[in-house]
Amino acid sequence: MGVGRIIGVAVLGFLFMFFVALDLVFFGVVALDSAVVTVLPVLGLVVGGVLGALAGRRQAGGQAGAPTA
């Protein structure tokens, strides 16, 4: 399934949503003390891990079905 990919995408998801949360704070969309600032990076971590697992499965499936020369 590619544990490396799951962890990698989860970390990227965390960082991506962390920066999105910072952007929202810097542009005044959410207040500094809003729970959104905490929730978004955690959401990125979880969704990133799930998407990483799906991507690993999809790639493994594609390679298994690929014709060999």
């Binding site: 990227l12 952007d23 998407l51 990483g52």
Partner: peptide, 29 residues
Amino acid sequence: SPITWVSLGGTAITGIGAAFALRPLFRKV
């Protein structure tokens, strides 16, 4: 503020990185 630009840059770089890592999901089956 330069901090805002750093944050926007971080959003772009990590977003592109995540999209790159998730390429198999966007591939047509």
